[in-house]
Structure formats: structure tokens, C-alpha cells
């Protein structure tokens, strides 16, 4: 009798959605390498989490917030998946993207007002036909981010949301939150939140020498 129960329980525990703390130190997170080995080592899945929202918080333009994503975007476009820029603040400059190895044929830019921008980002994520969706949402709130998170899950796409640094204190449903700090010398990447990170001793701040 007990053997039957044990085997049934085993079958349940085999389910990929179930993770047992005691079984392994690392939960299974599907991720795409960031292209930066040190940063990969700090993230539980070893990169940007797939099918989830990653938030990037920054104060000033031009501190390397976009080049952080470039290796991943190059990888996605070279696999023939689309990358969508939703309401970027400036023109994504084609020669620079190409120089980073991004295949421009798979890059799409969407211009819209903020409300339509959020709608477009959600549509793109939910469709399942985009590899990554980058959106600049100055007015994003918890509900909107939650919607994007669900859309990214159902479409299995990478969602990157760029927000101003002052949003760092607000709660967010994003799977990963990074904040960029900068001074005249260097840029630091701080991991504010990271789903699946159970190792408290893991460093949360990375110095990037510029």
C-alpha cells in the first residue's frame, strides 16, 4: 500500500513545476546568456530569464543600459527571431546595432503613445512570434508589469522593461530587476530582485569598468 502511495507521490514530484529545496541548490530557470560571464554567474539561471519580465532601472541615458542586452539580442536575431523595440526614447541606430552583431532584418520598431505602447508590448509578447520585446514604459505600474509578465509567460518571450531609477523602491512582479548605478568612473549593475535566487551569499553588485 505504502509503496503505491510513494510511487504516486514520486510521479507528482517529477512534475517540472515542482521544485524541492532539499533536492538541489539551484532551481531550474531557463535563461539566455547575457554575454557577460560575471553577470551570468550572478544570475540563478545563468542569464536573462526566458518567458519573464526583466526590469532595467537607470537614471541617465547613455550609461550602457542598452549595450547590456546586445549579446542576447544578437543571439536572438541570428536565430531568426524578432526583436521589437516598443516606444524607444531615441532612434535605435542601425549601424551600431549591426556592429553589435544584431541582424537588422529581425528588428522592428513601434512608435505609439504610452497606453498604446503598453498594449503593443503585450500583444507582441503574447503572440509567441517574437524573441524579445524591449519597452520603455515611463508610466508602468504593478498591474501593467503583471500583464506583461503573464504575456511573456504565455508567449515564451523575453521581456525587457526600461524604467527610471526612482521606480526601484516600488514593488514589481518582474522576475529580474537590475539597477544601473553610475559615477564619473564606472557603471555598477545591482541586482535588486532575482527570482530563484536562494543563495544569500551570492554577490548582488557587479562593477563594470568602462
Amino acid at each position: 500500500m505504502s509503496a503505491v502511495i510513494a510511487s504516486a507521490l514520486d510521479a507528482v514530484l517529477q512534475h517540472p513545476g515542482i521544485w524541492r529545496r532539499s533536492a538541489s541548490a539551484r532551481p531550474h530557470v531557463r535563461a539566455l546568456s547575457t554575454g557577460n560571464a560575471e553577470l551570468d554567474a550572478m544570475l540563478p539561471g545563468g542569464g536573462w530569464p526566458c518567458g519573464a519580465v526583466s526590469e532595467i532601472l537607470f537614471e541617465y541615458d547613455g550609461i550602457g543600459e542598452l549595450s547590456l542586452l546586445m549579446p542576447a539580442l544578437a543571439d536572438i536575431t541570428q536565430r531568426g527571431q524578432r526583436v521589437v523595440f516598443v516606444t524607444p526614447p531615441y532612434i535605435p541606430y542601425a549601424p551600431a546595432l549591426a556592429a553589435h552583431g544584431v541582424d537588422l532584418r529581425y528588428v522592428v520598431q513601434i512608435d505609439a503613445n504610452p497606453a498604446e505602447g503598453a498594449w503593443s508590448a503585450e500583444q507582441c509578447l503574447r503572440s509567441g512570434s517574437c524573441g524579445a520585446v524591449l519597452s520603455w514604459l515611463p508610466i508602468a505600474d504593478y498591474t501593467l508589469l503583471r500583464r506583461l509578465q503573464l504575456a511573456a509567460e504565455s508567449g515564451d518571450a523575453l521581456a525587457f522593461v526600461f524604467r527610471p531609477a526612482k521606480a526601484a523602491s516600488k514593488t514589481s512582479p518582474a522576475a529580474l530587476r537590475l539597477q544601473l548605478h553610475t559615477d564619473a568612473e564606472q557603471t555598477d549593475i545591482e541586482i535588486l530582485k532575482c527570482r530563484g535566487n536562494l543563495d544569500r551569499r551570492r554577490p548582488v553588485r557587479l562593477r563594470c569598468h568602462t
Binding site: 532584418r105 500583444q123 507582441c124
Partner: peptide, 20 residues
């Protein structure tokens, strides 16, 4: 279908590709 939906909602010139 996604692109057509976006274009019809946002306008034809709102969704663009890029090239060098």
C-alpha cells in the same frame, strides 16, 4: 497576423523595420 494587427491599430507608419 501580429504585424497586421499592430499596423491596423496604431497606423501604418507606426510599425517599422530598420536597415543600414
Amino acid at each position: 497576423s501580429l504585424i497586421e494587427r499592430l499596423r491596423s491599430h496604431l497606423g501604418d507608419t507606426s510599425v517599422r523595420g530598420l536597415s543600414g
